[in-house]
């Protein structure tokens, strides 16, 4: 419908007339840094910055992961967990809480009754304390990490951890739906008091799996 719109032509013509004769403006000189963090300090900085924004950070090795996930679900009192289609089998091997598979037909109302969700991530950024989800097989559809109130996210360290934001960009595919998460949801709208947890998961737990 848009090509027929007279406004499209009008706006484009106005844009062209507005900058007609203006000097060319070069693109950006990318002289800024791609990271501010030495390589061996990244995982620690990620842990520090995640904690600074009130995410709960845990460290584990591959062998200890199933028991840790099971413990976190139990401590949260979770009876059910949303499971992305490609979540590695061992991650939930230590728990028998009810699994709710991420399916195309699952409604938001159904997910509202699910206590927790366990996912991997696409990349984690140390300097900003950010994990990025790209709806990959171990992360699932966006809604499963949005509606349940408790999100456990597994980050493989150091492979998935970059220092600065510019290092994350080439690792991400912008044609996939992306969710950048830096701590649990928060608001400072009431007299600037930070309150954790408005609409997104109120508890974010990040497990850094090393080795």
């Amino acid at each position: 419908m848009s090509p027929a719109s007279p406004s499209r032509d009008r706006i484009l013509a106005r844009v062209r007339a507005a900058v007609d004769g203006a000097p060319e403006a070069p693109g950006p000189a990318r002289t800024y840094r791609d990271t501010h963090t030495p390589e061996d300090g990244r995982v620690d900085l990620l842990a520090e910055n995640l904690a600074d924004y009130r995410a709960l950070v845990h460290r584990s090795d591959e062998a200890g992961l199933p028991a840790l996930v099971a413990r976190l679900l139990a401590e949260h009192g979770s009876g059910s967990v949303a499971v992305p289609p490609g979540l590695p089998e061992p991650w939930l091997a230590g728990t028998d809480v009810t699994r709710v598979p991420d399916a195309p037909g699952t409604t938001a109302a159904e997910l509202d009754a699910v206590d927790s969700v366990v996912t991997g991530c696409a990349v984690a950024i140390a300097e900003t304390g950010t994990i990025v989800l790209d709806a990959g097989p171990d992360q699932g559809r966006r809604r499963i990490t949005l509606v349940p109130d408790h999100h456990i996210c597994v980050v493989r360290a150091p492979e998935q951890v970059v220092g600065g934001v510019p290092q994350a960009m080439p690792r991400l595919d912008p044609t996939r739906p992306l969710t950048w998460i830096s701590g649990p949801s928060a608001t400072s709208d009431i007299e600037l008091d930070r309150v954790e947890g408005v609409h997104g998961p109120r508890t974010l737990e990040v497990i850094l799996v090393e080795g």
Binding site: Y53, P177, L178, T179, W180, I181, S182, G183, G200
Partner: peptide, 14 residues
Amino acid sequence: ERMNPYTTMWTGTT
């Protein structure tokens, strides 16, 4: 903040 809690990026429909 170093980063805001959530940023959503989407391209058309998925």
